[in-house]
C-alpha cells in the first residue's frame, strides 16, 4: 500500500507513475475520482502539487479538484502514518464499546484522532463501518483486522508494530 516519500528518486518515480495514471484516464467518462484514488495510492496523500498536476492533466479547474478532494473523507491532504490505525465506529462496534478503545489509542499513542505521531509511524482515525460487524468492536491497522478488541488489548496490538525494524 501507499507509503510516504523516501527521497528524490522516489519523487521522480511517483511523478512518472502519476503521469501514466492521468494519461490512462484522460478522455474517459468521469475520470477525476479514479485518478485521485490512484494518486493517493502512489503518494499516500494528496498534497497541493499533486492536485494541481491532476487539474492540469485532466483539463479541470483546480477548484473542482480541490472541491472533490475536500468533500470525500477517503481523500486526505495530510500524510498518514506508516501504520494507519482505524478504529471502526459502526453501530455494532459502538454499542460494544468502540469509544473506550479509541480513547485508549489516543492516550497510548499520545495523538488526537486524525493526527500522526511525530516519527511518522502511526496515525489514528475513527473510521466508518468496515463491515466486519461479526467481530465487533474492530480495529484495522493498515490491512490487518483485529476483532473483539478491548482497551486492554491496545498496547499489545501496538507492540506488534513497534517491534518491526525500520527498512524491512
Amino acid at each position: 500500500m501507499a507509503n510516504v516519500c523516501n527521497g528524490c528518486a522516489d519523487a521522480l518515480a511517483m511523478e512518472k507513475a502519476l503521469d501514466e495514471v492521468i494519461a490512462r484516464y484522460k478522455g474517459t467518462k468521469g475520470p477525476l475520482i479514479p485518478v485521485l484514488h490512484e494518486a493517493q495510492a502512489i503518494y499516500g496523500y494528496l498534497p497541493f502539487e499533486v492536485q494541481l498536476k491532476i487539474a492540469e492533466g485532466l483539463d479541470l479547474p483546480l477548484a473542482d479538484v480541490y472541491g472533490v478532494v475536500s468533500f470525500y473523507t477517503g481523500f486526505t491532504t495530510k500524510p498518514k502514518g506508516k501504520y494507519r490505525v482505524s478504529v471502526c465506529m459502526g453501530t455494532a462496534c459502538y454499542v460494544k464499546g468502540a469509544e473506550a478503545i479509541l480513547d485508549k489509542f489516543t492516550t497510548s499513542l499520545g495523538i488526537n484522532v486524525g493526527d500522526c505521531t511525530e516519527d511518522g509511524k502511526f496515525s489514528l482515525d475513527a473510521c466508518r463501518c468496515v463491515g466486519a460487524c461479526g467481530l465487533a468492536p474492530v480495529v484495522m491497522i493498515n490491512d490487518d483486522v483485529y476483532g473483539n478488541m478491548t482497551p486492554d488489548k491496545v498496547e499489545d496490538v501496538l507492540k506488534k508494530y513497534e517491534d518491526v525494524q525500520e527498512g524491512i
Partner: peptide
C-alpha cells in the same frame, strides 16, 4: 467498477450518479 471515497450520502441515488461523474457527491 467505480469506487466511492467515504461519503455516506453517495448511497443516495442522485448523489451516487453525481459521484460517478466525478463531482462532489
Amino acid at each position: 467498477v467505480r469506487l466511492g471515497a467515504g461519503a455516506f450520502v453517495c448511497g443516495e441515488e442522485t448523489a451516487l450518479m453525481t459521484s460517478i461523474e466525478g463531482h462532489r457527491g
